[in-house]
Write a protein that binds this DNA or RNA. Structure first.
Lengths: 206, 206
DNA sequence: TTTTATTGATTGAACGTTCAATAAAAAAAT
DNA sequence: ATTTTTTTATTGAACGTTCAATCAATAAAA
């Protein structure tokens, strides 16, 4: 049913179908035919709109990362309170947004993350996103603690968020978003509390 | 050069070659020919010793998980101090063991982890390992805090460990083991400190 | 009638597995 | 000790399958 202006519609259809396919059988067994069947179109259309399978995969990852950034940005812009605590809380909430954490997006995210180790283009996208998260966190922590502590706090919280995602993506029942948010916020509380009343030196690991 | 008793030697050679190949080009582009070339043998031998490519991949994941458990067990058995703190510290140290964190093992671990989402056999191995880590942590935390807190502490620390691994596997320079251990130990300190002097109720997330 | 979107059979490359042939060591026989 | 036989390990070409990409044909809107 060729109508004019199909391009944006088809592109979105195919990106959604890609996530559905990866969620269903994993990236390794996601073929162009399976994606096309999910979208209700023929296989050839993928090369037509995305230049090939790789182009579609790249566009899909790009969308996931964009959505994630968007979920964070929305919450940060809606803050009434400008405190570091509020900003970091919004970052946590955004990272555990329903639309990101539930359904196909989560498994697709992990699949791409693993795949990005050896695909330069995906690695680039991953890196840009990572750096933004880290530098945002670092900037906010920096407002209440010295540089070295802020760096560690940012790295620790980033690792915690990713770790919760990772474990959630693997759990058959999916991520328990409420629990994940609770653990992340509790960790954040502890980071602030620890700065408030620095303990004695127990950091002899290195 | 057929000698008798080649089986254990070849099996180990092929498992090592598999990790090297995955480290080099990723799981998706790891073919039996590439593995065989790494090991200096022919492709057919893989089916002979492992029944096929899948058998070799399963054996490789099994070895990685075994090595990881071993690294933890060695440290726990060597403890002079039987405190919860010492046990959990040993678990952290074992999880960031040099042989695990450096080189091909780390990337192979992440590749398998992602792959285990859709391969029942790998998922089973993953689950067994996960449960052991969680129940060990939980049991130790349980010695110094109520059940609910112990559960949360165990989940938080497990997420932190996995998150640090995940980020380390993706960083081109590899995981900074010293920093990872520092962050994990600091988090552990905070968990204990937080229990020692429970803050006011700031847990209104759920 | 022209333009645009879509199809799906075809093509060529890549992969895992198989298996008859081979080569080397070990065992037996001379 | 040497030769012959048996056993064991290994090879690599051939086979069948699967997949992504292509493109001439088609069908629907403009």
């Amino acid at each position: 049913m060729p109508k004019v202006g199909m391009e944006p519609i088809r592109r979105q259809q195919l990106i959604n179908a890609t996530m559905a396919a990866i969620d269903e059988v994993g990236l390794a067994e996601t073929t162009v035919m399976r994606i096309a069947r999910h979208a209700g179109v023929s296989a050839g259309i993928i090369s037509h709109y995305f230049g090939g399978k790789d182009g579609l995969l790249e566009a899909t990852m790009r969308q996931i990362l964009t959505d994630l950034s968007g979920a964070v940005a929305v919450r940060r812009n809606a803050l009434e309170d400008d405190s570091p605590r509020a900003h970091i809380g919004a970052i946590i909430e955004g990272n555990f947004d329903r639309t990101q954490v539930t359904g196909p997006a989560a498994k697709t995210w992990l699949a791409f993350w693993a795949s990005s180790m050896h695909k330069p283009m995906l690695q680039r996208l991953q890196n840009v996103n990572d750096r933004r998260l880290y530098s945002n966190l670092c900037h906010q922590f920096r407002r209440v603690m010295p540089r070295a502590e802020a760096r560690n706090a940012a790295r620790g919280l980033a690792a915690m968020i990713d770790g919760l995602w990772l474990r959630g993506a693997l759990t058959p029942e999916g991520l328990d978003a409420a629990e994940a948010r609770f653990l992340a916020h509790t960790y954040l509380d502890q980071l602030f509390a620890h700065y408030g009343c620095p303990k004695t030196e127990s950091n002899t690991y290195s």
